[in-house]
Structures are given as C-alpha cells and as structure tokens.
Amino acid sequence: MSKGFFLPLVSVLLVSHLITAYGLLDSYVQLVLMYVGINIILSVSLNLINGYMGEFSVGHAGFMAIGAYTSAILTVRMFPDALAPWLFPIAVVAAGVVTAIVGALLAIPSFKTRGDYLAIVTLAFGMIVKSVLENMDSLGAARGFLGISKYTNLTWVVFWAMAAVWMVRNFIYSSFGRGVLSVREDEIAASAAGVNTRQVKLFAFTLSSFFAGVAGALYAHLLMFINPKMFDLTKSTEMLIMVYLGGIGSIGGSIVGAMIYTVLLELLRPLGIWRMVLMPIMLVLLMILRPRGIMGLSEFRWLIPSVGVSSKGAKIVQDDAVGD
C-alpha cells in the first residue's frame, strides 16, 4: 500500500465511525452523505468502462440490481437472523463477487464489438436484468423485495467508497490500466504492442461490475426495500450524468460529479417537480461551456501515485493527467 494514502484513509474512516456511533451529524445529512458515497462508487466504476476504456455502457443499473438482490437474499433469507448484522460485510463482498462474474460474462461481447453496438448490448443487459427480476415471484416480482434490515451506515459507505477509489486508481496506474487506455486510443496498435486486449477488457468489466454490485448491496441495506423499477434505464442515466458531469477518464472527476449531482438534487428538492427540469438544463449548459466535464481527463495530484521513483533516482510522476 502506498504510504501517502494510509493515514488520511484511516482518519476519514475513524471520523465517519464517530459520526455514525455518536450521531454527530443530523441523520438527514448523514443520509445525503451516504448517497454521495454510493454514487461515488457507481460513477468511479462506470468511468472505468465509459471514460478510461472509451466504451459506452448503459447497463450499470443492471449490475447494481444484481448486487442489491444478491445481498438482500443473503441477509434476509440465508443468514441466521442473530448473525445477519455481523455477516453483512460478507453479504456485500458476495454481492460484488456475483456481480463481477456477470460482468465478466458481459465482457465477452466487448471482444468482438465496440462503440454503439456494445452500447446496445449493455442496454439489452439492463433490460434483461430488470424483466427477470420483475417476473421472479420468489423475489417479490414487481412489488419488490421487503424486509431488508438497515445495516448500511456511514462508516461502511465511506469504507467502500475509498476502497473503490483506491482500487480503481491502482488499476488505472498499472500495466492493465495502461492497457485499457491503449485500447481506447487504438486497439490495433495496442495489440501490436503486446497488449492482450481481451484480458484487459475482462479485467476492466469485472472490476467495474464488482463495485457496482457493492454499491447495490449498500443501497439495498440503506433503503431497506428494493424493487426492479429502481434499477431501470433512469438509474443508469443518472450514473452517466455523474460521470460526464465530472469528466470522463478522471477518478477525481467522478468523485466531484457524484458529489455535485447528489447534493444539488437534494438542494433543489424544494422546487418539487421543477428540479427535474432544472437539472437537465444545467447539464446542457455545462456540456456547452465545458464539453469534457468539470475535470475533463485531468486528475487530482493526490490521486496520481508517485511510485514512479526509478532506481536511478529520477522521480517521474505518471502522466495521463495534467494535475489539478
């Protein structure tokens, strides 16, 4: 683990634990913060596919749904009631793993097709997940899945949001990550340079869907109720907005995008139905004024690892980013 990351990580986690344990913040503020965290996980993971790999996935809500339902089945039906609160972390990881397996399967069409065609595959995937859930009576069908306990708290959300940011960053600044970028830039040149493009795509899809599944699990145990309609195309669109608002190909952008979108949506709540008019207008304006999003392919310095300390002593900062 890089040393620069460890201390802030632990202290943020400690603070969020104190907030959770002693109710230091208003519960509404806590709730909004948890939404922010979950949305950071979603947008960072989606940015991996849409920003870094340069594909256009619109099926991320489908992954989220799989994670949500998997974890709910585990905590409500599989785990003994007395142990369920303690086993919740396992349910979250399991939700991520199951979703990652599905994500790996969805990587297969990406071997052969890209661009608009792959977008349609992901669109179809999202629709399939939703209609399967709607027709499974054992999972409550369209009525939804009831009786989920509230195990998600700020500490868990902060922990997973940091884990997502840290791991996606580690992935991007590695051979695999550079492989993903090379696929975006020129797939033929990438394969000529020895990049195993299938391996790279498989890894990116798996990692991305793992965290979408985790976000789904946290979401389910925060709302205590899930139904298939929550994970429709609107949800995927919301994630796309956060990614493009913050800026594609930037982890910092995804964090900022998720924060602004979530908080703004809450602040505009008094406007009632009009916020759904105002929000898109603001987006259109942003795209006109800043077509690459707020961060647009650049990155916060603190997110760029400085491991490039060469043995010859020359310190090289990795550089697909121009700094903040």
Binding site: N170, F171, S174, S175, F176, R178, G179, L181, S182, E185, D186, I188, A189, A190, A192, A193, G194, V195, N196, F203, L297, I316, Q318, D319, D320
Partner: peptide, 27 residues
C-alpha cells in the same frame, strides 16, 4: 499509430504489457 493522448512515457510503457508478471492481486 501512436496512443496520441497518452504521454510519451506511457506509449513505451504500454509495450511492456506482455512482460509484466504482476497479476490482478498485486495490481
């Protein structure tokens, strides 16, 4: 056919992909 928006260093580093031994866990 270069990776145009990536840095000069990254262009060369990408070509070490096939030689890198670290798997998903180490990464």
């Amino acid at each position: 056919r270069l990776f145009k928006t990536l840095s000069v260093l990254d262009n060369v580093r990408i070509a070490r992909y096939g030689k890198a031994a670290c798997g998903p866990f180490d990464t």
